[in-house]
Design a protein around this nucleic acid. Structure first.
Lengths: 222, 222
DNA sequence: TTCTGATGTCATGAATATGTAAAATAAATG
DNA sequence: CATTTATTTTACATATTCATGACATCAGAA
């Protein structure tokens, strides 16, 4: 799936991380210090890296700063792993330019899902334009247009439509939709998704009925 | 939703697990030892299983190893439940091939969400397409087509047809059909299955008569 | 053949999922 | 901090699916 570098001096934890991410079909390389890590990034830049805050030679924050200074690794997705729970650390990590953080002790599932989410987020930012025939989503302008005419969508509507078009021809169930658009678990008794689908359908005019309801399963655009 | 087996010798904990997962709309069967568990998996393979590490007859790790050795259960999603918090256990669990682990004491919510997450993960890796000659089940579109023509099926009909095709050439008795499609026990006097078989036969047109009735046993496709 | 239990078929109300509008919150904006 | 806009929730309407039970039919045993 993706090439991931891990910088973590605690061998036990590093191995857990390696196992978990390999299990999730990623190609993983682990390093116990910053030096080894940089030696490798000079050679091959990974798709994502997981960096512990406390390291023998350099702090994780230092590593992030360096990576951000280098044009080649400026946009490299970074997840910081920290044992310190204070919020200061968290903020600092993000200010320094990490894209996400995980607090120890973490669960394997959490690790996997955060990595997955970040990879997805990055991949999404890469896409400049999405289209479904004459319906165009311009991600740079954050604007949707149909036959040259701009369609005004709210944030959630935009996200939802993007998700549908990114997965055209694939039925998305409510769990997935909730997870991807709202980042939360779907709780059975909510009409939120239907609501947004309804307004989307309305706003998309003739294209509205291309959002199909698959009863008992979810929604799909075709 | 899904059929889940639990192997846990502590009756109290097992009952909590059973209650929690039943509440989350799963069909649950609990076992207090490995022996009973294997007896049942030889019969019907569940969608997921929850295995305690410490058991009277065999260790949870042993069970996992055995399951992984058997082609039928090789990919069966497994969650290990452990009281030992050491990281060694965690790593070992993953090495042994469990897909996730839960540490005791766990919260009911954690249990449910981990189960849900794992099921989703597995479901996604699920088969994209099933076919029986020209009859194609597209699981992404959740659509059935015969010679390019879409056949409109309801949810249950779709499930039933999938089950038949996944087991083509194998007679499925009513118990199994009820269990897999409805997630409930078959109660002798119901015409429900026959009903759906009838509409399926009708909707499948020329392919309809490939669903064979095996008197006193069940149904089979081919 | 006749009998018996299993399966096929049908109509219909109940259950369930989705659609929709409007009110209630929450969030953003100036 | 008031106003606007977006979002979620609630409550209800609508649509579809499904289970059920009564009855018909069938296949095989006696």
């Amino acid at each position: 799936m993706a090439l991931i570098y891990i910088v973590e001096d605690d061998t036990n934890i590093r191995e857990i991380e390696e196992f978990a991410l390999s299990n999730a079909k990623h190609k993983v390389l682990g390093f116990s210090c910053a030096k080894d890590f940089f030696k490798k990034t000079d050679e091959i830049i990974p798709d994502l890296c997981l960096i512990d805050i406390m390291l023998p030679d350099e702090s994780g924050n230092e590593i992030v700063k360096k990576l951000r200074r280098n044009p080649d690794t400026k946009k490299l997705p970074i997840i910081m792993v920290t044992a310190k729970t204070s919020e200061l650390d968290l903020v600092k990590g993000i200010e320094d330019g990490a894209d996400d953080y995980i607090r120890k002790p973490f669960s394997v599932m959490e690790l996997i899902s955060r990595v997955k989410a970040l990879l997805r987020r990055v991949e999404k930012e890469d896409i400049k334009e999405l289209r479904l025939d004459d319906l165009i989503i311009n991600n740079e302008k954050h604007e949707v247009s149909l036959n040259e005419t701009v369609i005004e969508l709210t944030f959630k509507e935009y996200e939802l439509l993007s998700l549908f078009i990114m997965n055209k021809g694939i039925v998305l169930n409510r769990d997935v939709i909730m997870d991807r658009v709202w980042g939360t678990e779907y709780e059975g008794e909510s009409r939120t998704i239907d609501m947004h689908v309804k307004t989307l359908r309305h706003k998309l005019g003739e294209y509205g009925n291309r959002i199909r309801t698959v009863r008992n399963v979810g929604y799909m655009i075709e």
